[in-house]
């Protein structure tokens, strides 16, 4: 599980200029969680990782749309990318693009887990 998490975060943060990104990162993370679910059952997974899929999805969507709206406050064109001057080693430059990706990451993880949980509960 830590490996999946680490690799998915790696994919998330390299996503802007290299293959990767929020969607594929979320898929990798959900593989890990789904494996855990298959091995230990849904209640265990829910308990250990304290996941509320609905909240995860909606928070992710909100972050993404915030990234889209935020440019309205600064420069004036909808969805325009904003780049800050803050560089963090390993993460690259902070920007609204990254924010959008993080949102996608959370939303996709949430919705995939929601689907997986409901299928597994049947």
């Amino acid at each position: 599980m830590p490996i999946f998490l680490a690799y998915s975060l790696y994919l998330l943060f390299r996503g802007h200029n290299n293959p990767g990104g929020g969607f594929i990162g979320a898929l990798v993370l959900s593989i890990g969680l789904v494996f855990h679910m298959i091995a230990f059952g849904v209640p265990a997974t829910r308990r250990i990782y304290k996941i509320n899929t609905m909240v995860l999805t909606s928070v992710g969507l909100l972050i993404s749309s915030l990234a889209a709206v935020s440019s309205l406050f600064f420069e004036g064109v909808f969805f325009e990318a904003i780049w800050t001057d803050i560089h963090i080693v390993g993460l690259g430059t902070l920007s609204s693009v990254l924010m959008f990706d993080v949102g996608v990451y959370l939303a996709v993880t949430g919705s995939i887990l929601k689907i997986a949980f409901s299928i597994f509960n049947e």
Binding site: M54, V55, T57, S58, V59, L61, L62, S65, A68, V69, L72, F73, G76, V77, F78
Partner: peptide, 28 residues
């Protein structure tokens, strides 16, 4: 309210509906 560039007013209904949909998910 922040100052609205008229061109941005056009996305307002879309954004309002989408964001309120997301908020509804949050308070599911």
């Amino acid at each position: 309210m922040f100052s609205i560039d008229p061109a941005n007013l056009m996305v307002a209904p879309l954004l309002i509906f989408m964001i309120s949909g997301m908020l509804c998910l949050l308070f599911y």
